[in-house]
Amino acid sequence: MCQHTPTCPTAAQPDREAAKPLTRSEVQGWTLLCNGVLLFDDTGELLPDGQIIAPHRPVAATGAAA
């Protein structure tokens, strides 16, 4: 699917989110990457094979260190 040089990571690779965006919907909160991954603003993903990747944004630290 990707025609970039060098090619973007495939949807099966761990760095799949590094692929270049093709289109974006600000209102619905998603970006379609050139490897077919649908990346959501909450960091969840829908892969081309239908696999769902749960949101994985970092957890913010709360409270002060003692």
Rank of each mutant, 00 (worst) to 15 (best):
52 I>V: 08
33 L>A: 02
64 A>D: 07
37 V>I: 02
20 K>A: 08
5 T>S: 15
18 A>C: 12
29 G>A: 00
43 T>F: 01
34 C>N: 03
41 D>A: 15
45 E>G: 00
40 F>L: 09
45 E>P: 06
12 A>N: 15
32 L>G: 02
31 T>Y: 11
12 A>S: 13
21 P>G: 10
34 C>F: 03
21 P>N: 13
2 C>K: 02
59 V>R: 10
54 A>V: 04
24 R>N: 11
47 L>E: 03
66 A>W: 11
46 L>K: 08
50 G>R: 00
63 G>H: 02
46 L>T: 07
8 C>H: 02
19 A>R: 01
35 N>R: 01
34 C>A: 06
43 T>A: 09
33 L>S: 04
2 C>A: 11
5 T>R: 07
15 D>H: 02
65 A>M: 12
33 L>F: 07
39 L>K: 13
13 Q>C: 06
21 P>T: 05
9 P>E: 04
58 P>Q: 10
41 D>K: 12
4 H>C: 15
22 L>P: 05
52 I>E: 09
31 T>N: 12
46 L>D: 01
30 W>M: 03
51 Q>P: 08
43 T>W: 03
1 M>C: 11
1 M>A: 12
17 E>V: 04
61 A>L: 11
1 M>L: 09
47 L>A: 07
41 D>Q: 09
59 V>I: 13
10 T>N: 04
40 F>N: 15
42 D>N: 15
60 A>V: 13
15 D>N: 11
27 V>F: 11
7 T>D: 06
49 D>K: 03
2 C>Q: 06
37 V>H: 04
24 R>A: 07
23 T>M: 01
34 C>R: 05
22 L>G: 03
50 G>V: 01
56 H>T: 15
2 C>W: 07
41 D>H: 12
14 P>Q: 10
21 P>Y: 06
57 R>C: 11
34 C>L: 05
19 A>V: 02
8 C>R: 00
66 A>R: 14
18 A>S: 14
54 A>K: 03
54 A>I: 00
55 P>L: 05
32 L>F: 01
39 L>I: 01
